[in-house]
Design a binder for these strands. Structure first.
Length: 270
DNA sequence: ACCGGAGCCTGTTAGC
DNA sequence: TGCTAACAGGCTCCGG
C-alpha cells in the first residue's frame, strides 16, 4: 500500500533510469488502467516525448514531459513501477508497458488493478482538491491548527482524508497518532495546542522515517528494483495487534474506524 | 459536515 | 484436505 514515503522512494529510484529518456510505444493490456485520455490518444501524445523530470504530489508520481504534458500515475494498493530491458519477461500483472528509445521499458505492474494512469496538460486536472504536502514548509503547526479547527471528525479518518493533508495512508496514520500519543477516535477540534504541535511533529517524523527507510514492505510494496524497504521494521503499532507496546508494554489494540483497521496503544494514546 | 456502505480488484488467509 | 468466504486498503460515489 504505497503511501507518501513509498511513492517518494519510487520517484527517487526512477529518476536515474528515466530522466532524459524518450518514450516510444505504449502497450496496454488493461485499458481501464488509463483514465484519460483514450489509450489511442495517450499512445499518440506520449510518442517521442522526453522525460524532463519526475516529481511527487501526495501519492501521485508526475512525469514532466518535453511537450509540457504530464504523465501521472497513482499506484493505489499494489501498483509497482520498474524500468527493465525489453527482453525481460513480464508476468501477467504487468498491464501497461511504456517503451523507451534506449531499449528499456517502464512497466506498470498491478495485481489488484486499482492503479491509474493519466496524461494531462495541467496537473490540476488530476490533483485539484488535494490538501497540503505534509513535508513542505507551508504545512506549519498553524496551518494544521487551522485545518483541525471546527472539525468534529475523529483524527484517524481525518488523517486519511487526502483533502485534509495529502499522502498519509493507513500505516502512517496509525504510526503518527501513536507518536503523538493521541487516540485515533479523538475529535479533531478537541486537541490542545500542545497536542496539535505533537501531531504536527509526529506526522513529519513518521513520514521522514518512512522515506529514510525507503518505505514499508508489509504486504506488497517493494522498491522499483524489487528490494524491500525497511520501514516495516520500525513500525510501532501498525499490524501489531496483541504485541506489547514499545513504550509501556500494554498489548496493541485493533479497532475498525471509518472502515479501516486501526492499531493503537490503549495505554499511551488518549 | 460527517458517516456508512458499495464498488473496483485478486492473492492470501481464516474457517468450516 | 479442499472449498468458500472474508480480508486487505487505495480511492470515488451515493444516500442518509
Amino acid at each position: 500500500m504505497p503511501e507518501l514515503p513509498e511513492v517518494e522512494t519510487t520517484v527517487r529510484a526512477l529518476r536515474q533510469p528515466l530522466v532524459g529518456r524518450t518514450f516510444t510505444e505504449v502497450r496496454c493490456y488493461w485499458p481501464r488502467q488509463i483514465v484519460k485520455p483514450s489509450l489511442a490518444e495517450l499512445q499518440q501524445r506520449l510518442h517521442g516525448q522526453r522525460v524532463e523530470a519526475i516529481s511527487r504530489r501526495a501519492k501521485y508520481l508526475l512525469f514532466h514531459l518535453s511537450s509540457g504534458d504530464y504523465l501521472i500515475i497513482h499506484l493505489k494498493m499494489t501498483g509497482h513501477l520498474s524500468v527493465v530491458g525489453a527482453n525481460m519477461p513480464a508476468d501477467k500483472h504487468v498491464h501497461t508497458i511504456f517503451s523507451l528509445a534506449n531499449g528499456q521499458e517502464l512497466r506498470f505492474r498491478d495485481m489488484r488493478k486499482f492503479g491509474r494512469v493519466y496524461l494531462v496538460a495541467h496537473p490540476d486536472e488530476v490533483l485539484a482538491g488535494l490538501g497540503p504536502e505534509p513535508l513542505e514548509p507551508a504545512f506549519t503547526v498553524a496551518e494544521l491548527q487551522k485545518r483541525l479547527n471546527g472539525r468534529s471528525r475523529a483524527l484517524k479518518p481525518l488523517l486519511l482524508d487526502q483533502s485534509f493533508v495529502a499522502g498519509i495512508g493507513n500505516i502512517y496514520a496509525d504510526e503518527a497518532l501513536f507518536a503523538a500519543r493521541l487516540h485515533p477516535e479523538r475529535k479533531a477540534d478537541s486537541l490542545t495546542s500542545q497536542e496539535i504541535t505533537a501531531l504536527h511533529n509526529a506526522i513529519q517524523q513518521v513520514l521522514q522515517l518512512g522515506i529514510q527507510r525507503e518505505g514499508a514492505s508489509i504486504q506488497n510494496y517493494v522498491k522499483p528494483d524489487g528490494q524491500r524497504g525497511d520501514m516495516q521494521n520500525a513500525v510501532a503499532v501498525f499490524r501489531r495487534t496483541g504485541y506489547p507496546c514499545s513504550v509501556c508494554e500494554a498489548p496493541i489494540e485493533r479497532i475498525v474506524l471509518g472502515g479501516r483497521s486501526t492499531h493503537f496503544c490503549p495505554s499511551c494514546q488518549s
